[in-house]
């Protein structure tokens, strides 16, 4: 057992613990959460239809993970991100990616040294076709637009994934959850979808 290192400002609310199996400090993120680490921690998440970008500065070992999905499109259902570029889905997805990248850069990362890995987007919620694919398609579009290459990806398919990410080394362990009960993952994702669809995450405006 070691002391849990201090979290970067803004990530104090994330569930962090000593992982007895991996013998490492860990941070577990839920749908809609982010975590960035400077301390060689392990970042853990479980993905159904959601997608996670694991991004780190491969020179400095600073990195983190997001975990999100796009809100449903009630406007034109075109998936051409570029031409339908101000839909609530695009704006939310952009924010989820940019927020993670900005926090890594603020923690000392350099854009030119970023390494990106992408996971998730399974077809887990059976009554909602291809939303996993849609989340992955968005992340691929976004990264291409920003000139960031994907160095590893495991996405799609019908099983949820447990992802363990080590931002200091870039190592990732992905386990497909074929046999465990997935009710918790599904109900957590459904709750999250309901939230982002009914309460759009529009930022505050303040005039000085």
């Amino acid at each position: 057992m070691t002391n849990i290192p201090t979290a970067i400002a803004g990530f104090e609310h994330i569930n962090r613990y000593w992982d007895r199996n991996m013998h490492v400090n860990a941070a577990k993120i839920l749908p809609g959460e982010f975590y960035v680490s400077l301390h060689g921690e392990m970042i853990v998440t479980v993905l159904g239809s959601c997608v996670s970008a694991c991004i780190r500065d491969k020179v400095r070992g600073v990195g983190g993970m997001n975990h999100f999905m796009l809100p449903m499109q009630n406007e034109h259902s075109s998936e051409q991100w570029g031409s339908n570029s101000v839909s609530s889905a695009s704006r939310y997805g952009n924010w989820a990616m940019e927020y993670l990248i900005n926090e890594i850069l603020k923690a000392g990362g350099k854009r030119e040294d970023l390494e990106v890995k992408v996971f998730g987007g399974g077809q887990v919620l059976s009554n909602m076709t291809d939303i996993g694919q849609r989340n992955v398609a968005f992340v691929k579009y976004y990264l291409a637009k920003e000139g960031l290459k994907i160095s590893a990806m495991d996405a799609g398919g019908m099983y949820p994934r447990k992802v363990l990410y080590f931002p200091d080394t870039g190592a990732v362990k992905v386990r497909k959850l074929k046999s465990t009960r997935n009710d918790t993952i599904i109900s957590r994702e459904k709750e999250y979808i309901k939230d982002i669809n009914t309460q759009p995450k529009d930022g505050a405006v303040e005039l000085f």
Binding site: R91, Y92, N94, P200, K201, G203, V205, E206, L207, F208
Partner: peptide
Amino acid sequence: ATGWLVKPFNP
């Protein structure tokens, strides 16, 4: 600055 808007922005 005149004002501060937090992303994601609402058009």
